[in-house]
Computed example of a mutant assay.
Amino acid sequence: MEVVICESAEEIGRHVADVFAAVLRGPAPVIGLATGSSPLVAYQELIRRHREDGLSFAGTTAFLLDEYVGLPAGHPESYAAVIRRELTEHVDIDPADVHSPDGGAADLPAECARYDAAIGAAGGVHVQLLGIGTDGHIGFNEPMSSLSSRTRPKTLTQQTRDDNARFFGSVDEVPRHVLTQGLGTIGTARHLVMVATGTAKAEAVAAAVEGPLSARCPASILQWHQHATVFVDEAAASELEFADYYRHALAHKPEWQGF
C-alpha cells in the first residue's frame, strides 16, 4: 500500500485523474466508480481533461460500487443518477456501458449474483475508486462485513444513514437497505484507489492504513491488496503514526515508478 499525503483536495483530484487517465488510454478500460463527497474533485478534474485536453472515455465500461434499495426509478439520489450528474453525462462514455446494481429488482440476491458475473464478464475492473466512511466502511460494507464477501444486500447502520441524510430531506428519507459490491468483489480490481479529506475521516483512515486487518474496519482490506494507493489531505492524515515515513517515501520515489 502506498499512502500519499497531499496539500489539498485539488492535488488529490489531479493524482486520481492521472491514475484514471493512464487506464483510459489503454485497451478496453474498465473503471470502478464511487459516489459521495470525496471523489468529486477527481471527477471534476477528469471532466476538465475531457473538455480541454481531449481525454476520451469512449469504449470504457464502468461499474458502480453500490445502490440504494427501494428508491423510485429516476430518484435524484439514486447512485445511478448521482454518477450521471457528477461525471458520466459530461464525458463521452456510452450510457449503456455504465452499470449499477438494480435496487428495484424483484429478486435482490439474484441481482447481486448477476452484477458480480457482469464484472467478471467484462474482464474485471482495472482501477476502482473508493471513499471511506467515518466508521471505516467502503462501498456499503459496514463494520463486521466479511472480508471475502461478494455483491449482496446490506442493512445500513444508523451512523451511515445519519451521514447520508445531507443528501436527502431528512434521515427518515434515507433507505435502510442497499446493494453493494462486497469486499471480496472490490478486491478483484487490479488497482484500488482510496481518497479521504478532512479531520472527520482521520480516525478511519488511520484504522484502515495502520490498524489490524479486520472486519471491524472494512477499509483495512486495502492492506491485503497487491496494488492499493491512498490519497489523503493533511487533515485526514493527522492520526497516521507513520506519516513522516509516507512523506519520505514519496519524496524519494523513483521517477519511473508511477502510482
Rank of each mutant, 00 (worst) to 15 (best):
G36A: 01
P39G: 11
A113F: 09
H252K: 10
R161V: 11
R25G: 15
G103Y: 04
D162V: 13
E234S: 14
A110G: 13
R25E: 15
L40P: 07
Q181E: 09
F242M: 15
G187N: 13
D163H: 12
A196E: 04
G13F: 00
F231L: 12
A236V: 02
E67T: 06
D233P: 06
R14A: 12
E86M: 14
A189Q: 00
A106T: 14
G59N: 10
E2R: 15
L71H: 05
P143S: 10
Y245T: 15
R190A: 12
T60D: 07
R85C: 09
R161Y: 00
I119K: 11
Q128V: 05
T160Y: 06
H225N: 09
V125D: 04
A58E: 14
I186L: 15
A110D: 12
Q181A: 13
D163E: 11
A219V: 10
R51C: 08
H177A: 14
S100Q: 12
L87D: 04
D18H: 10
L222I: 13
M144C: 12
T199P: 12
T199M: 01
V171S: 04
R48T: 12
E111G: 09
H90W: 13
A196F: 01
V82M: 14
Y68G: 04
A251G: 12
A189G: 03
A117F: 08
K154S: 12
A105V: 12
Y43I: 02
L130A: 02
T134P: 00
A118I: 05
P175F: 08
S37Y: 03
A243F: 09
A22T: 15
H252W: 03
F57Y: 06
L240T: 02
V23W: 05
A219T: 02
P27N: 11
G103F: 04
A235E: 14
W224S: 15
H75L: 00
S170F: 00
L129G: 08
V193Y: 02
V98L: 09
V16A: 15
V209K: 03
F231A: 06
A105N: 07
D172I: 00
L24D: 01
F168C: 02
P101Q: 08
D233R: 05
V193Q: 08
S170A: 11
P143I: 10
T61W: 09
R85S: 14
F140Q: 06
T229R: 09
R14D: 05
E67G: 03
P29W: 00
A235I: 05
P212T: 02
A165L: 08
R161W: 10
S145D: 08
A165V: 06
A9C: 14
S37V: 13
I138L: 04
D53W: 07
K201V: 03
V16G: 07
D172V: 11
F140Y: 10
